[in-house]
């Protein structure tokens, strides 16, 4: 399955995270599994008054075998994680599969297979694996999250929303989960619901940068420009080198006809991120609105240095040149 061109290669707040269950997480879960399995084995035998020696030996052997199996599965798993980090996804998948052969309900291994497939661009297989991970362990929030993110990448927003709700169901105190859900609503055009989710996230964590950013962008698309400005200014105060926040704050100022502030903001953004094509392009558009065509031409030319084949900037450059010529 191929992603839409506008998604491929574009880093976005919507698509930033893949949760990979690493060794520490595995250890915790393996201990949990061991504890549960031992408890299950222990309880029936503890009730028996008479225990023959031969049976004890057999149980010890079974226990030892199980411990060895778990240890071996863990070993494969860790090798998979190592390979994954090294970018060797095919090898990682082989190791995770070996772990699953030993422990068929090894949810984290399924989750990581999904991640490796996602890295390989095999999204259908990735989705299948993430689904298996949450089937094996319904409260594996990483699986729900990764499933949601991949559905979102594929434009299957309703399913993404369901998956993100799964995260919230099992971990309602996780602020970032509401941000994810809000983004999914935002992508489907349901901005009211999106904003509602971002607000919940901010109630849980008032300093959550991505929630401030997302709510700011959403307010802007709702036409609530003052609120957008306020939120995005908070983001910049918290993270002054965040170029995309300048871009969106610039938009919000421009939407309010605060062209001087918009130009200042885009300009600052362009200083922070000199290779950010979009900021230069928007700076040019804003100069156009002030009828400052010479400045606009310079900004568009700068954008074209960064992205020489940007047809839309070429078009705007032509408009600026035509208007400058008419002015003369």
């Amino acid at each position: 399955m191929k992603l839409p061109a506008n998604v491929q290669g574009e880093s976005s707040l919507y698509f930033e995270k893949i949760y990979v269950a690493g060794p520490a997480f595995v250890t915790f879960n393996l201990l949990l599994v061991l504890f549960l399995s031992c408890s299950k084995e222990k309880n029936p035998s503890a009730n028996k008054e008479t225990q023959h020696k031969g049976i004890d030996v057999q149980l010890d052997k079974q226990k030892a075998k199980k411990t060895n199996t778990l240890a071996q599965a863990k070993e494969y798993y860790n090798r998979g994680v190592f390979n994954q980090k090294q970018g060797m996804q095919e090898k990682a998948i082989i190791e995770f599969r070996k772990a699953i052969q030993l422990l068929p309900d090894y949810a984290e291994a399924y989750n990581n297979i999904g991640t490796s497939y996602q890295f390989l661009g095999e999204y259908d297989k990735a989705i299948q694996s993430y689904r298996k991970s949450v089937e094996a362990q319904p409260d594996l929030i990483e699986g729900h999250h990764n499933l949601g993110t991949l559905y979102l990448l594929q434009g299957e927003i309703d399913q993404a929303i369901t998956a993100y709700k799964g995260v919230i169901h099992f971990k309602p105190e996780l602020a970032t989960a509401y941000v994810d859900l809000g983004r999914a609503y935002g992508m489907s055009g349901q901005l009211d619901q999106a904003i509602e989710q971002f607000k919940i996230a901010l109630n849980l964590d008032s300093n959550l940068l991505e929630a401030h950013y997302a709510i700011g962008v959403s307010y802007r698309h709702q036409g609530m420009f003052n609120m957008a400005t306020e939120s995005l200014e908070k983001v910049i105060a918290q993270k002054p080198n965040f170029a995309e926040a300048y871009l969106n704050l610039g938009y919000a100022y421009r939407d309010q006809d605060k062209l001087t502030e918009a130009i200042d903001t885009f300009y600052t953004g362009s200083q922070i991120a000199p290779n950010n094509y979009q900021i230069c392009h928007e700076l040019g558009i804003t100069y156009m609105k002030q009828h400052r065509y010479k400045k606009a031409i310079v900004a568009f030319q700068q954008a074209l240095k960064i992205q020489p084949k940007a047809v839309q900037t070429e078009n705007n450059l032509k408009v600026a040149q035509a208007r400058l010529a008419q002015k003369k």
Partner: peptide, 21 residues
């Protein structure tokens, strides 16, 4: 739990045009 996170954060939603006057 480990996370792989992209450092660059781009604008959300479709890149939309904006306006003046």
């Amino acid at each position: 739990m480990e996370t792989f996170q992209n450092s660059a954060v781009a604008c959300i939603f479709t890149k939309l045009t904006v306006l003046s006057f």
